[in-house]
Simulated assay, not measured.
Amino acid sequence: MPEVPADPKGQALTDLILTVFRTNNLLLLWGDRLVSSFGLTSARWQILGAIVHAERPQPVAWLARDLGANRQNVQRIVNDLHHEGLVVFAPNPHHRRAHLVVLTEKGREIYDAVIEVYTPRVNALAEEMNIDDIQVACNLMKILKFHIERDLDIIKL
């Protein structure tokens, strides 16, 4: 099996990618545990957050795009959230079939309650970290995201 890759920068990026994969798995587990008492999962919480932070109600396809997620997966989760009364579908004046996803009062209450639990936990996690390091890491992840998006255009299926 060949060494991947021989270039020192490529090897360093491979190490970063593997660390991101592992960290992502832990982050999802952490999120699942944090929100389980609210009847949520990390995925449901993430979608509720996307709805809350959107400038206006959006259709599922736009939520999926903003999250960098598969539309069908987002649709399935939004349907579950709808079934539980956390979101409703509203008519979309720009598209007859692509309804807008709107948070209900119950959905807002649950989201706000989750944030009350999240805030002290995230502050505790950040306590031993340097803010400059956090910002550098965030910027690096944004650069990596940009380059991966560009590369996806090159390696289309």
Rank of each mutant, 00 (worst) to 15 (best):
M1P: 14
P2L: 09
E3P: 15
A6I: 00
Q11W: 09
A12I: 04
F21Y: 13
T23K: 14
L29Y: 09
W30T: 13
W30V: 11
S36R: 10
S36I: 06
G39Y: 08
S42K: 03
I47M: 01
L48D: 02
A50F: 07
H53T: 14
A64T: 05
A64E: 01
A64F: 05
R65S: 14
D66L: 00
L67A: 03
L67C: 06
G68R: 01
A69H: 02
N79T: 13
L81Q: 02
L81C: 03
H82E: 15
V87I: 07
V87Q: 03
F89H: 07
A90P: 08
H95W: 01
A98E: 14
A98W: 08
L100S: 05
L100Q: 04
V102N: 06
V102Y: 07
G107N: 07
R108V: 12
V114H: 00
E116R: 14
V117R: 13
P120F: 04
V122L: 11
L125D: 04
L125A: 12
E127W: 05
E127Q: 12
D132L: 06
N139G: 14
N139E: 13
L140E: 10
K142P: 00
I143G: 11
H147F: 06
H147L: 13
K156R: 10
L157V: 10
